[in-house]
């Protein structure tokens, strides 16, 4: 594996483990494999890992594990032959009402990338978006963005509240937000599906490695789908 691992302290109860490499996908896969290994209790059951793009935040209780022990375990993991276990990859179909109140920034995004609104929707729905990580707030799905010609700048002043189910873009990323929250991303649409479930351990129906396929719907279809639980395509 053409990667290198760097560990830096993050206070007395966390470490930042950065994977350095040339291929973005290789780095991301290594980050999620390492986090999975740590979350399965490889060092200690109390050690937990938050994987993102090129880094894993490793949190621990200094009463049960030390930074030194975790670091040496990670060195050992890095030296293990990289059996590339397949990352789980389910597909989730997500109906989206674009523009209007559901996507107040759609027209603005169209102007920025220099395409008509219809073409923006086409680009968003053209491919399956890979979920790279779960992020704040509340297990939002952070995915690779649509194939826009230029990155999309964030809002100068974040909105105090975007609604649950908002589909937003910024930079070269796209995010699906399960809950109402403040956001500086550009909201282009909204899904009628229910994403969050606090009566289930998983809380959200997706994991990093899953793929999302967006499908444009009109207001009538949107209203008809309101409250339908989000789930995998193969769960039919």
């Amino acid at each position: 594996m053409a990667t290198k691992i760097e560990v830096s302290p993050c206070g007395d109860a966390a470490l930042r483990v950065t994977v350095v490499g040339t291929g973005t996908d290789d780095v991301w896969r290594a980050v999620h494999r390492l986090a999975g290994w740590l979350n399965r209790g490889a060092v200690h059951p109390t050690v937990s890992a938050v994987p993102t793009y090129d880094a894993v935040l490793v949190e621990f209780d200094p009463y049960h594990a030390t930074a030194e022990a975790i670091t040496s375990h990670i060195d050992f993991w890095d030296a293990m032959p990289g059996e590339d276990e397949p990352v789980r990859s389910g597909v989730i179909d997500v109906p989206v009402l674009f523009g209007g109140d559901a996507g107040p920034d759609l027209g603005w995004v169209a102007d920025v990338i220099g395409e008509p609104v219809a073409r923006v929707v086409e680009l968003v729905c053209a491919k399956e978006h890979l979920i790279r990580c779960l992020g704040g707030p509340a297990a939002s799905a952070m995915t690779d963005g649509p194939d826009f010609p230029v990155p999309v700048p964030r809002l100068a002043t974040p909105r105090l509240r975007v609604p649950p189910g908002a589909i937003s873009v910024a930079g070269r990323q796209l995010v699906i937000g399960p809950v109402a929250a403040p956001s500086g991303w550009r909201q282009i649409g909204r899904t009628p599906l229910d994403i969050l479930r606090t009566d289930a351990e998983a809380v959200v129906p997706y994991r990093p490695g899953d793929r999302v396929r967006f499908r444009p719907v009109g207001q009538v279809a949107y209203d008809g789908l309101l409250g339908t639980p989000m789930r995998y395509r193969h769960d039919d």
Binding site: A13, R16, T52, V56, C133, G135
Partner: peptide, 27 residues
Amino acid sequence: SRGVPVGAIEAPTGDELLVLMRGRGIT
């Protein structure tokens, strides 16, 4: 975007430091 620990001190624009507490967004 990266995972941030509880207790992280961030320096956003403006004249205030932000110290993250246990309810922080994880990234």
